[in-house]
Each structure stands twice: as C-alpha cells, then as structure tokens.
Design a protein around this nucleic acid. Structure first.
Length: 426
RNA sequence: AGAGAGGUGGCAGAGUGGUCGAAUGCGACGGAUUCGAAAUCCGUUAUACCUGCAAGGGUAUCGGGGGUUCGAAUCCCCCCCUCUCUACCA
C-alpha cells in the first residue's frame, strides 16, 4: 500500500510510476485519495475537538456530583448530549471515509523502481545476463514428463486419484530427490547467513492483507472457510508477517530468514498446453529467502539475494538467465523484480524457477513494519524483500532433462550426491 | 470437545464506575557517585492520528468489536486467544 504522504508530495512521480505499470485510472484514484484524506483530517479535527469538550464536561459533572450539586450536573448534561450527537456523526462518517480511503489505496500497485524497463508483457522483460552452457541433447532425448514415467519417480495419476490434477505423488528416488534439494537449499541459505524458520502453512486473513495477497488475489489461494484460514501460496506470507506490527531495532537489521514450505496455488484459469508435467502445479515445494532491510540498503541486498540464487543454479550446473521484469509483467506489490529462469533442454524453453523482489515500503506500510532511525525520533517504514531459493518442480524438470544420457539414465550434479544418497537415476 | 480461570505498558504485576495512559517492581536509557565497575541515588522510558514553523496542545488505545453511562481498564453482549482439569490424540 502506498503512503498517502507520497501521493500528496510527489503526485507526478506517482502518476508516472502507475503509468509504467499500466494502471488505468491513476489520475482519478490519486485525486480521490487526496480528497478523502483531506476529509479524513477535517473530520478527525472536528471529532477531537468535540470529544475534548465532552471530556472536560464529564470531569466537571463528576465534580458537581461529588459536591452534591445534582441540578448543576443536569444543566451540563444537556450540552453533553449535543456533543454526543456530534461525535457520533463525525465518527460514523470518519469510519466510512477511512474505509473508502483504504479501498482506493489497496487498488494502487507499488511504484516501479527507476531501473524497471518499460513494457507490457513478458516479451519486454530485459535479459540482464545469461550464464552457463546450453546442453545439446541426443536425438532420443525426452521431456521430463516422459522421463518421470520411465523411471517411475513421480506419479501424476496417483495424485489425480487421491487429490486431483496438479498434486503429484513423488516416489522412490523422486521423493528422495525432493528431500535432498530442500536440504541443499536450506543449508546453502544458512551458510549465507539466513536464519531458518519453519512457519505454519495456513495463515489468517490479517497475514494475507499484510503481504498483499488480499484483497486482490483472493481467488488464487485455497481458503478454509470454516476457520477462515488460507493455505499459503508462498512462504513469503508467513515469514514476512512474522514481523507485522513490529518496530525492529536497527542493530537487528537486516533481518534474514529462510524457510522451506509447501506452496499452494489454485492457478484458476491458467492451464494450457505449456503447463505439462512439473511446469505448473497446485502444490509444490519451495525454499524462500526473506529480508527486512533499511531503505538505503535494500537494493544492494536485492543484488546479494540474486547472487545467492545464481550460486545455487551454478552449483546445480543449470544454465540460466536473469531477467529484469518490465512494468507490465511485474507483480502488483513489487518495485523491482528479477526472475531467474533455467533452460529446460528437452522442452527447449526457459522455465522460471525464482523471482526476487524488493517491495520497498509497500508491504511494510500494510504490515506496520518500522524502525526508528534515531533514538527518540519518529518511526519509519522498513523495506521488505524476498526471493525463491529455490522452487523445486522446474528445477527437477531441468535436472532430469538436461542430464539425461543416451541410455536413459540421469546423472545428478555432484553437490546433490551426498544429499540424495545416489548419484544417478535409472 | 466439555468445565473452570484469565488476557493491563519491554517483562512481572496492582487497579471493579470519575482527576487512570494507568501504582509498584524488574529491565533499558541518561546523569550523579567511582580510578573504573558493582551497589546506591536522581531522572527518562508505549503507539497512532489531528493541530502547530516550533515549543506545545488535543484525541484514541488496558486482547478485538459492539453496548450501558455525563463519564468505562472497571458493568453488559459477541468474538479471539492463553492457562488448568477432563476427554481425545501425534
């Protein structure tokens, strides 16, 4: 959520930023917010004045009652009744104005960083760098969904039976590979200075609002209506919300957390030809890194996070590229996002395996996540960042496809051997 | 899940209708004392909003929401959470 003060003080920058994100009704919404905010202030001032008078009268009435002057007290009560009417109507309108203000603010996406390229869709994303060699596969190479079947390591039909499409069952070496990757990713993050947390994978409504999944992405999360809890789409949600309503001591910054969780996404209406196999699932595993940082450090930290993720891909021997997302392709809450994609050799396409973003104060404003720049001074919003390090399914897809030999076996990268307890599949 | 008890400032804990944003203790911070430290003493120590150039002033917040009242931490209703016992379970 953007801060009203930013809209008021830098309206041109806000409008330019919203335009870059292809937000349609920017001008009208900014105007509406500013006038609602003015109305809010006026009402607050009037309300406070009436309340102050009422408080004073109540004190006087108390004194009169104590002195036994009942008649005198009754006289003052008349004015008090008037004030009560006033404060009530002020409070009612104030509540309405605040709701309208918040709803309009919720509609506005975050403003993009100046380095974000112009553009509408994925085609306009900027390729920052491409690392690693594209492997040349032999003539009989197969896509991962065939390899999976051949080695019987992931079973989609069984998942269909017990749950539904998009919920695969990992078996034998497939199950062990999952566990190995999770441990490898967690160990690497810990070595890089991240504190491991294991959060709940269901969150309440307030957490959904805190990181921006609610209200606008309601339909993307699985929702347990009975207890009003949401299955998390990413560990970003519970981990970032750990710090909701906190004023973090400066010497604790940056906060660095890593967590493994399953992730659940309804992916309503996003199924098509290119989502076969592991390319898109309703449930998948992911290790997520989250940082909470001082504003002046957050962009350096974002680069560090990307470097960490690249390190993982390099150790796995996967060719990848780093994209800087354009304004139109970026997430709603992000100011700058790098996507990392690995080359899936048999499919002959890039697969997104990580997304690392700086949200600046957008989430922090909703979360009320602050720090105090100077002793005794006013609190300021912190910056929040996160990145996948990494999401498993497409990594598995690329590992299988890129490392298949002519005899059909798959040789795993060296770093995974000890984690897996085997060095090849098949 | 059933019965009971309870949720107050960073923590502990008092406060059952008025001057209570809230005693006291601990912790933290500043100062005095000390060669330095401990101990001791003095002081400071919530958040948000409105108003003001500022100093300051005002309002709200005692788990959350609503109500009664001139006035609510205190009384009433609903919800959430915690603890104890019972039941159940991993």
């Amino acid at each position: 959520m953007l801060q009203v003060s930013v809209l008021r003080e830098h309206p041109e920058q806000v409008l330019a930023g919203l335009a870059k994100k292809h937000y349609k009704t920017a001008e009208a919404d900014v105007q509406a917010i500013l006038s609602l905010d003015q109305r809010r202030k006026d009402l607050q001032t009037a309300h406070d004045a009436a309340q102050a008078e009422a408080n004073e009268l109540a004190r006087q009435i108390g004194g009169l009652m104590k002195a036994g002057d009942k008649a005198g007290a009754e006289v003052l009560k008349v004015r008090t009744a008037e004030l009560k009417q006033q404060t009530k109507s002020h409070a009612d309108e104030l509540a309405q104005v605040e709701i309208a203000l918040q709803q309009t603010l919720y509609k506005l996406p975050n403003l993009p960083h100046s380095s974000v390229p112009e553009g509408r869709s994925a085609q306009d994303n900027e390729v920052v760098r491409e690392v690693g060699e594209i492997p040349q596969l032999h003539a009989t190479a197969q896509p991962h969904w065939d390899l999976i079947k051949k080695h019987d390591i992931i079973d989609f039909e069984l998942g269909n039976k017990i749950t539904g499409a998009g919920f695969p069952v990992y078996k034998k070496q497939g199950a062990r590979l999952q566990r190995a990757l999770i441990n490898f990713f967690l160990d690497e993050a810990r070595a890089a200075g991240y504190d491991e947390v294991q959060p709940p994978i269901l969150v309440n409504e307030a957490s959904g609002y805190g990181t921006g999944q609610l209200p606008d992405k309601e339909g993307q999360m699985y929702h347990d209506e009975r207890d009003n809890l949401y299955l998390i789409p990413t560990a970003e949600v519970p981990i970032t919300n750990l710090y909701r309503d906190e004023i973090v001591a400066v010497d604790k910054l940056p906060v660095r957390n890593v967590g493994y969780t399953p992730c659940f996404r309804r992916e309503a209406g996003s199924w098509g030809a290119d989502v076969r196999g592991l390319n898109r699932l309703h449930q998948f595993d992911k290790v997520e890194i989250v940082q909470i940082a001082l504003p002046e450090q957050s962009y350096t930290i974002l680069e560090e996070m990307v470097a960490h993720i690249e390190g993982l891909l390099q150790k796995l021997g996967l060719p990848y590229r780093v994209l800087r997302l354009c304004g139109g392709d970026m997430g709603f809450t992000s100011a700058l996002t790098y996507d990392l994609e690995v080359w899936s050799a048999a499919q002959g396409r890039w697969l997104e395996v990580s997304s690392a973003s700086n949200f600046e104060t957008y989430q922090a404003n909703r979360l009320k996540l602050r720090y105090r720049p100077e002793e005794g001074g006013k609190t300021q919003l912190l910056h929040t960042l996160n990145g996948s390090a990494l999401a498993l399914p497409r990594i598995v897809a690329a590992l299988l496809e890129n490392n298949q030999l002519e005899d059909g076996s798959i040789h795993l990268p060296e770093v995974l051997h000890s984690y897996c307890g085997f060095s090849k599949i098949g």
